[in-house]
Write a protein that binds this DNA or RNA. Sequence first.
DNA 1: TAAGGCTTGTGAATTCATTCACAAGTTAAG
DNA 2: CTTAACTTGTGAATGAATTCACAAGCCTTA
Lengths: 217, 217
Amino acid sequence: MNEFTSLTHLVKRIADSTVRRLSAYLRFLEDFENRGLSTISSEELAKRGGTTSAQVRKDLSFFGSFGKRGLGYSVPELAGRLREILGLGREWRVFIVGAGKIGAALAQYRGFRQRGFTILAAYDNSSDKIGKKLDGVAVRDIEHLERDIQREKPDIVVLTVPGDQAQKVVDRVVKAGVRAILSFAPTQLHAPADVAVKTVNMAMELEGLSFALTNRD
Amino acid sequence: MNEFTSLTHLVKRIADSTVRRLSAYLRFLEDFENRGLSTISSEELAKRGGTTSAQVRKDLSFFGSFGKRGLGYSVPELAGRLREILGLGREWRVFIVGAGKIGAALAQYRGFRQRGFTILAAYDNSSDKIGKKLDGVAVRDIEHLERDIQREKPDIVVLTVPGDQAQKVVDRVVKAGVRAILSFAPTQLHAPADVAVKTVNMAMELEGLSFALTNRD
DNA sequence: TAAGGCTTGTGAATTCATTCACAAGTTAAG
DNA sequence: CTTAACTTGTGAATGAATTCACAAGCCTTA
Ligand SMILES: NC(=O)c1ccc[n+]([C@@H]2O[C@H](COP(=O)([O-])OP(=O)(O)OC[C@H]3O[C@@H](n4cnc5c(N)ncnc54)[C@H](O)[C@@H]3O)[C@@H](O)[C@H]2O)c1
Ligand SMILES: NC(=O)c1ccc[n+]([C@@H]2O[C@H](COP(=O)([O-])OP(=O)(O)OC[C@H]3O[C@@H](n4cnc5c(N)ncnc54)[C@H](O)[C@@H]3O)[C@@H](O)[C@H]2O)c1
């Protein structure tokens, strides 16, 4: 019923945990779409996502009301709304910096392209890597990073350089105008508040398991 | 002051976010250790971790009181305590299931070994991969997974198989007695409550950036 | 020994996130 | 048309995490 559905009018700051769940809901909806199902209830969505139906409804309610009482949500409509909310209606342009093992795995990963993330190029400082290709993605000289950012305007930089190089690269790409970074280096990164930085820290995840195994019952 | 410092007597459930921060603090402390510094205040720790000194002290207070008023924390002592809390005083035995691109990158990653995570073996179902080595880690036939789990008792299984295979493998390793899983498949996994499951979902992180870029100001 | 400067540890207050619970709306059946 | 069975959307209640704020303790200097 709320008419202020426009995404540019977000009143409350949306929690990170909410965004992650929206992302998960979209995945389930795509699964339903593929199987030709036309509606889904918050309860079913919750069961798959390991959460509660109230949580699902609350998450969606921040953005509008997309369901029909007594019936549930239209699968294609809700999927479309979530894509819109998450900004997946468009292509996102990505640079990878660091053409090592993880960088190579990411460059070759099809899951990203499928969701609209196009990897334009990878960068490295090693002459062993520069000029090579990673499954169709060219590895360019890191020297040209700023020039290429200005020319090709990537939306996101994925950082896969060694930890002690990571902050340096962040400073460079931020200066060059990049406003979103996904880092795999196991270091804390600092950037201005208007730059979105996410870090995937696998060692931290393993340590979380170590903690859980150590401190059970 | 609190004498119930024993880690087996944890009264409150410790939040995941707390454990992640402890992990980060340990990293900073190791940095300080290497530079030969002997004490650190909660304020300095907070600055590096992008949090507040009250948060640091509260996090630590769940486990005891390790600091000296007026002075701060002894770097080596606090590092030792954190290792103990996180269960890093020992070797953790790890199997990797799925010897593809990500599995290979992880098998070759030195950061894990450094922190006490020893990769015993990798498993795959493809005859192209079985019998090969990934930087010293043997790739074995998935057929022998249960047998080897019983024999070698890995503490943790790292899951790097395609998404549609992930739940199947979880069920197998859980049945065989594994109680901790780190998955890289972009799917929601279900396991009994006494099994610790963490998922690193890179697509979800990228979507978080997409959301941030789409919904700024 | 006393004073001043610093920093911890922790209840209390606050802020943030999740869950409850129910009015209101929808559909289907008779 | 009426009733029964469902399901949404959302304030209010609860629960969890973070921040505040300060007494208590340690160190240095004189
Ligand atoms: N491999 C893994 O499984 C894994 C797991 C967790 C975290 N990580 C982290 O990911 C990052 C990369 O790891 P990796 O295993 O791919 O390492 P790697 O050594 O294979 O790759 C790093 C690449 O970065 C390049 N590089 C170094 N300095 C650079 C600079 N200043 N500018 C541009 N390129 C530069 C190197 O030439 C190399 O090709 C590290 O921070 C690591 O800690 C890796
Ligand atoms: N490559 C990446 O950068 C990346 C990024 C994000 C997520 N992921 C996820 O990580 C997982 C692996 O990705 P990848 O790129 O390494 O794929 P990949 O195809 O290179 O590797 C998957 C491996 O698993 C093996 N496998 C398949 N079914 C198996 C089974 N039932 N038992 C044992 N082994 C089996 C395959 O033979 C293959 O070697 C996928 O779930 C993917 O979505 C990968």
